[in-house]
């Protein structure tokens, strides 16, 4: 549950960074190259953290049967 929470936090923060950088660059508040670097850094984190958040199980994990 705790990991789910932290994944959500990371996803939210990096998502906000991406969107804010794009918006600020569009209205000329931020240099375009700086916004691009911010998005390049934040977007991969956002994708992985988002997936981690929605794939994290809420209950107790059961042990998968591997077959051996």
């Amino acid at each position: 549950m705790k990991r789910k929470q932290s994944a959500l936090t990371i996803a939210t923060v990096s998502g906000i960074v991406c969107v804010a950088a794009a918006i600020f660059a569009a209205i000329g508040y931020l240099a375009v190259w700086l916004a691009e670097i911010l998005i390049v850094l934040a977007f991969p984190v956002f994708v992985i953290a988002l997936a981690l958040w929605w794939s994290a199980s809420e209950g107790v994990a059961d042990i998968p049967f591997i077959g051996y």
């Binding site: 998005i39 390049v40 850094l41 977007f43 991969p44 984190v45 994708v47 992985i48």
Partner: peptide
């Protein structure tokens, strides 16, 4: 994995 997404962005 992060690098893969980052470089192509």
């Amino acid at each position: 994995v992060l690098v893969a997404i980052g470089i192509w962005s």
